[in-house]
Nucleic acid binder design. Structure first.
Lengths: 210, 210
DNA sequence: CGACACATGTAACACGTTACATGATTTG
DNA sequence: CAAATCATGTAACGTGTTACATGTGTCG
């Protein structure tokens, strides 16, 4: 529901038309999250269907304007007032992938971690470079520079940087945990070998085949 | 596509039936990302439609087993081999919300940030508590403890913790940036006032600054 | 017996995404 | 003139999500 509310917020500044909304949206999120123009129109019609926006006539140049309704303003207010739920965050594909990788046999977990790490490092460098350019006063291509926009774009960039840094730290953390695990298993294997035939069935587990 | 591949990975360990897949999936992601049982079945039929899994007969207890096909194994391999794209990550609702909040007039940005901060702190505490319990050896409710599962669940928890910490740091960072911005604007306003006092242009005086 | 976990599915819907069709206007 | 940008839409599809229908077995 990010796009829905994003467009609603933009419309709260005053009536806009579709193409304009896309431009303004991208001015704030930069090249990070490109927004297909078509989606603006589909989202607009869904917003209109739900009574959050309404058609607001045409321009002298034929632009189809939309305006936010009272219901839309209310919706927007609760959006801003309600924190994004972090108790049940959106599924993170990387977390799921690693959770599966450490479980399914025959997967080189370390390779997965390292591959992702390289990629994330690369992404981080890109973001840092972009931030440098943003601080130098250069805005994204084709956008009219404005203080608010610049600030928004900068904050989004910072968020991406913080998040990516955390991801890399987590990947490293995973590696050390995996090393610990391997050590532990080696120790256990050695112990089992020493115990030899006198094995106790204390551990139950593994698969339930019928 | 996280669920698709997640189920595929689970099936790579050997044929499973729907209900079992849900249990095993949740054993790895804990209570964080509960998986509706119905979705397992819809996803399974879509996987079958795409030729990644195939029906593998019934149990003596009537359980409908599914097995991964060669195509499915190939798909799984490329999933593990290809890093999750961080150059164009999934849209983050919080980032978009703040980007809009700093742009749209009439929004108390600081209130939004603080509200989110409180919520994220709360979530972080929950995760930390869960991690403590997980380290104490207790697995989620109704799950058979297994070493791989425990490790996976622990890694997922760590990811959530790292990510939430980064989010909180970012929120604080936003506040300082906002303070800077406010300072800058105050300075600018003061400057404008000084200029105005110098030449007393009246209420509607033009402030043309070359 | 009634509640609850186990187990399998279907139907409907929401959102996001892409591809396509179409036309006006600007610009090299 | 040709290409690019501006501008509006539609159609189709994919995944994820919920609600519902249905039935079995178990346990207090």
């Amino acid at each position: 529901m990010s796009i829905r509310h994003g467009l609603l917020a933009l419309l709260d500044q005053g009536p806009r038309y579709g193409y304009q909304l896309r431009t303004e949206f991208e001015a704030r999120t930069g090249a990070t999250w490109p927004l297909n123009v078509g989606q603006v129109y589909t989202t607009l019609s869904r917003l209109e269907r739900d009574g959050l926006v309404e058609a607001a006539g045409e321009d002298d140049e034929g632009h189809q304007f939309y305006a936010v309704t009272d219901a839309g303003r209310a919706e927007l207010r609760t959006w801003f007032d309600t924190p994004v739920p972090r108790t049940s965050p959106p599924r993170d594909e990387l977390a799921i992938k690693l959770a599966m990788a450490v479980t399914v046999p025959g997967v080189d977990v370390s390779a997965v971690v390292q591959g992702q790490r390289r990629h994330s490092i690369k992404a981080l460098q890109d973001y840092t470079r972009l931030k440098g350019r943003a601080l130098a006063g250069e805005t994204g291509p084709g956008t009219v520079p404005s203080e608010g926009n610049d600030l928004a774009w900068l904050l989004v960039l910072d968020q991406l940087i913080f998040q990516t840094e955390a991801e890399i730290r987590w990947l490293d953390h995973c590696e050390t945990r995996l090393a610990q695990q391997a050590e532990l298993q080696q120790a256990r294997a050695a112990e089992a070998a020493r115990d030899g035939a006198a094995r106790k069935p204390g551990r139950l587990g593994r698969r339930t085949r019928a």
